[in-house]
Amino acid sequence: MVDKAKPTAVALEDATVAFRLADSRIFTAVEKARLAVAHGEFVAIVGPTGCGKSTLLNVAAGLLKPAAGSVRIFDQPLAGLNRDAGYLFQADALFPWKTAIDNVAIGLEIKGAPRGKALEQAQAWLTSVGLGAFANRYPHMLSGGQRKRVGLAQVLIRDPKILLMDEPFGPLDAQTRQVMGNLLLELWSADRKAVLFVTHDLEEAIALADRVVIMSAGPGSRIIGDWRVELPRPRDIFEVRLDKQFHELHREIWGVLKEEVMKGYAQSSQRGGAA
């Protein structure tokens, strides 16, 4: 499935993630996940709520250690944090006490770049995410969508080889999500990084990605499907949804996903009943 010519950026090999619960039972979030993301490939992971999509991303980031199996980054086993990856979080992750430009510049400053140079580059990145005029605003003075743009600039200024995104546009309204999707594609097409994009929105996944991976309902979720999206690039998120191929693919994947979503609901309501 992975293009042999390109190196594999992220490889999860039978990664199993388990947590010890408060009552010392073991909860298996993800079971034997096998996934490879080639360099320059955009992979979206879709699954029902609570299926461990974010867990998988945290494993790739090195924030979580798998209980079994291994993670390889560019063919090297991952130990500690993944230094090649930039992570865009679902929740607000900007430093609230720093202005937009300082939030973006920090990634370079901690690597030892002189402040003047870091600020210069940060300003350039803010401009490329459309916030050139908002450099001196604090996060609380920005809208949700603007904060996500700053977050994107904060991650991209470090030029990571791998981009991990955990439902980054989840909290935004539908229109803003589409605008952000287009911005992401535009920035990504400049120097194709490997992207692992977690979402619960199948349409968003198909519109953005080269491959869509489906996870089963938890606990112990597995990867149960892998589709290649052959829609031509450059894509426009607004336009691509009208494409016939888009609809066929959507119907096909939704056929599998729907069952898992229903299972997920049934289980979460059962768990709720038991508690």
Partner: peptide, 9 residues
Amino acid sequence: VLDNGRMLG
């Protein structure tokens, strides 16, 4: 925010 700091290096 803490995880973000770590991931930023």
